[in-house]
């Protein structure tokens, strides 16, 4: 790019500051991504590589095969459950953090963030030692006599849901915390002074005002959960397949790039679609709540 002298130097400065980064993200991210997604319209020829084409064959194959559809359905079900669990567990902690005046607050936040930074594979090592046949949970169940033989915990959807919830919970807590912190405590104090119970305060002040945080948190956590790779691979294995590991094995083991690319597109579009529907539902619900609120006042 030649910059003519009469053009202002500002454009030149902006260009040289942000140009290299933009170039890198374009070459190493945008173009590869578009190129990969383009592969989803190609034809896979076993033995050979693939042929360039414009066909919907791969999408058709995925969307009509119960085996592939079950992977997508399972991914949704596991991500949905993990999101719900993370919300139920995360909300009390986030509220506690937003209201506490304890000097330990920064240490508590560190404890919450820490497992997140350690990385999934390390945590999965811990989960295996808990869930395996000789693991701590089975040992405990045997000792108290609930079961006579070790029960299968690894490679079950429940184990995957618990492990994924554990991964995403810190994100949920931090997102909720940032919103709940901004709610004026005076509102709650006033409600208590007027004789409201804890539950009423929760239901009519904290939760309605916390809706933006709940929305952002659940959405973020759902997207993270449905894209999970390491945890379903290690904890779920071949019995609890999810989209990310399944599409990776299409690419690396089967070498079926077109189908793998189609799965990537389906995963991305499905995530966007369910997020949009979810936002619409929440919007409608919160509008109803507001309408009900004005009715009571009137």
């Amino acid at each position: 790019m030649k910059i003519k002298k009469q053009q202002n130097t500002q454009a030149y400065q902006v260009g040289s500051l942000i140009g290299p980064t933009t170039l890198l993200v374009t070459v190493m991210f945008l173009i590869p991504l578009l190129n990969f997604l383009r592969n989803s319209f190609n034809v896979f020829v076993p033995g050979q590589f693939m042929q360039t084409a414009w066909t919907l064959e791969n999408y058709h194959k995925f969307l009509t095969d119960p085996y592939y559809l079950s992977i997508l359905g399972r991914s949704f079900y596991i991500a949905f459950s993990a999101t719900l669990l993370a919300l139920v567990m995360g909300f009390p902690i986030a509220y506690f953090l937003a209201r506490t005046k304890s000097k330990w607050k920064s240490i508590i936040i560190m404890l919450i963030v820490f497992p997140l930074l350690v990385g999934n594979i390390i945590r999965d090592v811990g989960w295996i030692s808990l869930f395996s046949g000789t693991g701590l949970i089975n040992r405990f169940l045997l000792d108290i006599g609930v079961v006579q033989e070790p029960i299968q915990l690894l490679q079950t959807p429940m184990a995957v849901i618990i492990a994924i919830t554990n991964v995403v919970l810190p994100y949920m807590i931090l997102t909720l915390h940032s919103v709940l912190e901004r709610i004026d405590p005076a509102l709650e104090e006033a409600a208590y002074d007027l004789g409201a119970s804890r539950w009423t305060v929760m239901k009519s002040i904290i939760i309605p005002l916390g809706i933006p945080g709940i929305m952002a948190g659940t959405l973020f956590v759902f997207v993270l959960s449905i894209n999970a790779y390491t945890t379903p691979l290690v904890i779920g294995g071949s019995k609890v397949q999810m989209m990310a590991p399944a599409l990776y094995s299409q690419i690396s083991e089967v070498s079926n790039w077109p189908l793998g690319a189609a799965m990537a597109v389906i995963l991305i579009v499905f995530t966007l679609l369910s997020s949009t529907i979810y936002l619409r539902i929440i919007e409608r619900m919160s509008m109803n709540v507001r309408a009900a609120g004005t009715e009571v006042k009137g």
Binding site: T22, F29, L33, N39, A264
Partner: peptide, 24 residues
């Protein structure tokens, strides 16, 4: 442009990794 620079956050890293591999 700002959104563009942050966009690698929203694409699953496994897909980004595969895409970079295939492109290169």
């Amino acid at each position: 442009l700002q959104t563009f620079l942050l966009s690698p956050l929203v694409v699953p890293a496994i897909i980004t990794g595969i895409a970079i591999y295939i492109f290169l």
